[in-house]
Design a binder for these strands. Structure first.
Lengths: 226, 226
DNA sequence: CTGATGCTTCGGTTATAGTCGAAGTATGAA
DNA sequence: TTCATACTTCGACTATAACCGAAGCATCAG
């Protein structure tokens, strides 16, 4: 009777709590093994295995075999984007899990959204780059300007390597806590990696929180003024 | 163990085929009665009633009582937006329903996305308005320019009435068929209504397809050149 | 080779949620 | 009041799928 894409399958896949935990754990951007994900989701490895098979079959996850380990990751930026969108709506509607941890404020401040920076810091960075004329925006298309290329070069990023890939260089991604866009795409990924490598920030183990050091914070805000 | 918004609930709500049918039917933007939705989803009124209660409880739907009828509609633009996002991903991943109807090409051309114009025509309209300088875009913020206000006045739209509401006037919405943004927000809604009122187009009964008349098509493209 | 680890497949149990028939409530029409 | 329509609630059935114990592969270390 109905035509078009099959939403129900997607919904039911995300709808199971165990699978939700798996997907949310992978929002950290790291590839995790089957046993790690089982632990994360609070289920036995057997059960996790069946869940992972389903997610893989639906192409929501990507698999990387390495010896006897099997590393799982989100298949795509779009999957991460969908998860953030759902979190945004769920938050707005007041569907929150009762068990709220102390990590919450830190998550709002700066966190990883699959593979790029989100939270207040992520929003700030995009705003700054637009204000400085490093990026130009039309509709949902964000583009890197000449001034922006210059800026990235000064930071020590290889811009040519970015544009070589098939993924879009710049892409806005709506933030579920700040409800404003932050920067995704290969550039978003590269910048986050740069923060790690320059020791401005590091990822809090086992969470999606990004911890900026006092020095890193200063450098971040001087690199991205408003 | 986990904190933050409850995605699993959202997913499981959308994950049931019957509820998916209901939600998709409401993407037409019309408010429908419980029995109409039961028919649409291919279930008995009793079953539909329980589904509708759940969707209502989760605040995904809005209810309007009128006599012995109960009209249901999507609670919010954001809900419609989530559904389109999911359709986009599902389409990309190749999760399509097997039963594909003949409506498909028409749907790609012009359809209703909750309450505004989507499909190729919707994308064209946004592009044109940007090119004409009627709208200006920065990040995901689209704004109406002075030239745009002028243009709308010529069309016979009451701009002041639009900005009075709490909803954003302009908002981009990503298209699942064209994979490019089209115009949502109160302005998107007002423009679609204008097309109906001016008889440029009418909605195909019982579907989301928007049919442009030959004359309406000409007027549409002369109003929105590229 | 043997033993250990990481993960999957199989089998059987259990729980949940979707489903509808039947009965109940509310609104409206005659 | 009486009947019809629109919808909900109740109760019972059924199918699905999540779950884990046990066993089975595959990889690696020694």
């Amino acid at each position: 009777m109905k035509n078009g894409p099959n939403i129900a399958l997607l919904g039911s896949l995300i709808g199971d709590p165990a699978r939700t935990n798996i997907l949310l754990a992978l929002m950290s951007g790291k590839a995790l093994t089957a046993s790690e994900l089982a632990l994360e989701a609070g289920i036995t490895p057997q059960t996790a295995s069946t869940h992972l098979a389903k997610l893989l079959d639906a192409k929501l996850l990507r698999l990387h075999k390495q010896g006897r380990h099997r590393y799982f990751a989100l298949a795509d930026d779009d999957v991460g984007h969908l998860l953030e969108t759902m979190m945004g709506l769920a938050a707005k509607l007041g569907h929150s899990r009762t068990r709220t941890g102390p990590k919450d404020p830190a998550m709002r401040k700066a966190r990883v959204c699959y593979n790029h920076l989100a939270g207040e810091y992520g929003v700030h960075m995009l705003n700054s780059m637009l204000a400085q004329g490093y990026l130009s925006a039309a509709a949902e298309q964000i583009e890197l300007t000449a001034a922006g290329e210059n800026f990235l070069q000064r930071l020590g990023l290889d811009i040519k390597a970015l544009s070589r890939k098939r993924r879009p260089v710049c892409k806005p991604c709506l933030d579920w806590s700040a409800r404003r866009p932050h920067l995704a795409g290969t550039l978003g990924t590269a910048l986050l990696n740069h923060f790690y490598e320059s020791k401005w920030a590091h990822r809090q183990e086992g969470t999606r929180v990004v911890d900026f050091s006092p020095v890193g914070e200063k450098l971040f805000f001087s690199a991205f003024p408003l």
